[in-house]
Structures are given as structure tokens and as C-alpha cells.
């Protein structure tokens, strides 16, 4: 067992302190140290996107970030997408559009899609497919996911 390092960071708007080993990934820290199990491990090498979180506003695979790198950063996970007890339009559209089956890729898709709509509120189908290509889904064939993101975009820009 290695020496533990002290890290101060901001997660879902709250300042958080934790101890971790240098070798622990941000994903392991979120899940095992902080109990935020929304981000999932699908491959642990950056090829499925199930562990996507926002790191200083940018989508990253949290399996490819060291926990210690979170020092001073601002992190948002799927647990922080709904606010004040209300679902984000993306979450609502995923539910209404049946855009999930087993649900294990869903947190990663939601986080990546949020980053996408924050940046491109009027994202086209092609943009959505391109920007979400780092997230694998094996259940839905992507159809309903892409539609849900387009629907959420529509709602958010008309709100």
C-alpha cells in the first residue's frame, strides 16, 4: 500500500477533500473513496466513455486521469446534473425517449451530451453522433439516444 496524498477539489459544486494513492485514477477515487458510483468502469482504457465526467468543464474519461490531478480542479459527475431535485432536460428526454436499456452507459452519455449542448446548443444529428462517438452503448443502437439529445437541445433552446 502506497502513501496517501491529500487532495482538495470541487465536485458537483461542493469543496471536497480526500486522500488517495498516486496510482488511483479519478474514477477509482470517485467510486471507491467518495462513494460516487454513477460513473462506471466499462473498459478502464478510454474506449467506452462510461466513466465520463466534466473536468474543468471538459468531458474526460475519469479512468485516464489520476486522482491527484483533481487538486484545485472543478469536477462534475452524473450525480450533479440534476439540480434542486429536478431532472435536467437531458435526463428527462432520456426517460421519455426510452434512450436507455441496461443503463450502464447512460451516466457517461448524459455527461458527454451535457458538455455538447453547453457548447453547441443547436447540435445537429451528425454533430451529436461525432461528439458522442467516445461513448459506447451496446443496447440501443444509438437511435433513441441521439433523438433524446436532439429533443433536449430543442427544449433547452426554446426554454
Amino acid at each position: 500500500m502506497g502513501k496517501k496524498l491529500h487532495v482538495t477539489t470541487t465536485i458537483n459544486g461542493e469543496q471536497v477533500e480526500f486522500l488517495c494513492e498516486a496510482r488511483q485514477s479519478l474514477l477509482e477515487v470517485l467510486r471507491d473513496v467518495l462513494g460516487l458510483t454513477g460513473a462506471k468502469e466499462g473498459c478502464n482504457n478510454g474506449n467506452c466513455g462510461a466513466c465520463t465526467v466534466l473536468f474543468d468543464g471538459l468531458p474526460v474519461d475519469s479512468c485516464l486521469v489520476l486522482g491527484v490531478e483533481a487538486e484545485g480542479a472543478t469536477i462534475q459527475t452524473v450525480e450533479g446534473i440534476a439540480c434542486d431535485g429536478r431532472l435536467h432536460p437531458l435526463q428527462q428526454c432520456f426517460l421519455e425517449g426510452a434512450a436507455l436499456q441496461c443503463g450502464v452507459c447512460t451516466p457517461g452519455f448524459l455527461v458527454a451530451a451535457k458538455a455538447l449542448l453547453d457548447k453547441h446548443p443547436h447540435a445537429t444529428e451528425e454533430q451529436i453522433r461525432f461528439e458522442l462517438s467516445g461513448n459506447l452503448c451496446r443496447c440501443t443502437g444509438y437511435d433513441k439516444i441521439v433523438r433524446a439529445v436532439m429533443e433536449a437541445a430543442k427544449e433547452m433552446t426554446h426554454a
Binding site: 466513455g49 473536468f55 468531458p59 474526460v60 485516464l64 486521469v65 461528439e131 458522442l132 467516445g134 461513448n135
Partner: peptide, 9 residues
Amino acid sequence: IGGWQIQSR
């Protein structure tokens, strides 16, 4: 190079 998540880093 990879997807968006990779390109962020």
C-alpha cells in the same frame, strides 16, 4: 485522436 474525452486531455 480518440473521442472528445481524449481530446480534452
